[in-house]
Simulated assay, not measured.
Amino acid sequence: MKKYDVDERGYYGKFGGAYIPEMLYPNVEELRSNYLSIIESQDFKDEFDHLLRTYVGRPTPLYYAQRLSEKYRTKIYLKREDLCHTGAHKVNNTIGQILLAKRLGKNKIIAETGAGQHGVATATVCALMGMECVVYMGEIDMGRQKPNVERMKILGAQVVPATSGSKTLKDATNEAMRHWINNPNDTHYIIGSVVGPHPYPDMVARFQSIISVEMQKQLQEVEGRNTPDHVIACVGGGSNAAGAFYQFLEDESVNLIAAEAAGLGVQSGKSAATTALGKSGVLHGSKTILMQTEDGQVIEPYSISAGLDYPGIGPIHAHLFDAGRAEFFGITDEEAMLAGVDLSKLEGIIPAIESSHALAVFNKRVFNPEEVVIVNLSGRGDKDLETYIKWGKY
């Protein structure tokens, strides 16, 4: 039995499952009973691989960051998910899920988005497949990620603002789930991260696992070995991290490092550092670790990064934290922004602010000179230029 894989009930250790209202049960059960047979079929694999190669632009490069390596005195490779079509890893999952939706006979797609990258990736594949697309996005996120909102509209999606609560990712997810309850027969909900009721966390992790599959092959070519010493990724819900960690979960010689958004400081009251502040509870259909008050009300998260201000983490990451399999670091806004500008000036790559949180780990932890460290560079910084400009310290 694998220690870090999902079990037949949809649990990673004590986290996961499907905690859903009765009205959602038929939708989730249809997915659960069909997803494995569909995605493991040869015709699905062939179409998925073909689109990843010819449409997404995979494999993405594994780039040796020489100047960054010299600065931190270790061997740093960047897995360039920022070079995927649409500018982030999100499209790996949306391609997989829309192919699944087609085989389930669905012709309408809904999604939630925070930073807008998942929304853009969903709108993109809906345009590709000629499907109707509705994306829910927090009103605040729509303001700070305006270019992505316009990209979704150009691609033909309807973008619906979530105006309740904190008006961010959590609330967009709530609205999308309500929509799905009311439209179960013709609609598939493409969840963008390893969150939600089983089978979503497992399904999304499987689609994103292409990241670590490629890492292994590419590392073999450049280093003569197929495992790094460390893999670093940022974690909000955690789909890019799940993909980057996937092939190494059971190999404990590979150290897994997750960077969470500490916002203005872990204890500042303006943070999204879930593992430092959270406790076990149920969020969006699964048992996980989330930030909550004594009486179980969800605490509003905060991060300068629209993609990391989620009050929980995916159950796979909750299990990795609980089991001590992964190291978790809280990275403040300031630390992330400085790391993003640092990469820009040292390597000519402007990263998404989400990815900058992963890069900031090098200022928190010492690595040995002979160690091989892979950072999953999950997205490019185009969408964040306004935030970089407002911050201004470059």
Rank of each mutant, 00 (worst) to 15 (best):
L68G: 07
G238P: 03
K2S: 14
L359A: 05
R144A: 11
D43T: 12
N255E: 15
F15L: 07
V361N: 03
M291F: 06
S344G: 13
G192L: 11
E335A: 15
Y25G: 07
L249C: 03
K146L: 11
A172T: 07
W391A: 15
L277Y: 00
D82H: 08
A18R: 09
A360G: 01
I110K: 05
N34A: 12
F207R: 02
I374Y: 03
I257W: 01
H230M: 04
G236H: 02
F44I: 06
L68D: 06
T163E: 04
G392R: 09
N255V: 10
N174H: 13
Y19N: 11
L83N: 02
L385A: 14
T168P: 03
K108Q: 14
E221H: 04
K287S: 12
R144I: 10
Q117V: 14
L100C: 12
E371I: 11
M1I: 09
S239T: 12
V6M: 10
L359K: 01
A233I: 05
V56E: 01
V91W: 06
T187C: 07
G281D: 02
Q158K: 15
S239D: 04
Y11C: 07
E30C: 11
D46P: 00
A259S: 10
T274V: 15
A88G: 09
R225S: 09
A176N: 01
T74Q: 10
N376Q: 07
A65L: 05
R67G: 01
W391T: 07
K79Q: 02
Y200Q: 13
F48D: 03
I232G: 08
R144F: 07
Y388C: 09
L359D: 02
P197Q: 11
V372T: 15
M177E: 03
N376R: 05
A18E: 00
I299D: 03
Y4V: 04
I191N: 01
I140V: 15
H357T: 01
A242K: 04
L249H: 04
K75E: 05
K217L: 09
A306H: 04
V28P: 02
G119K: 09
E214H: 10
M131W: 04
T332Y: 03
T387L: 08
A244C: 02
G57H: 08
Q267N: 12
T122D: 03
G57C: 12
G16E: 11
K393M: 11
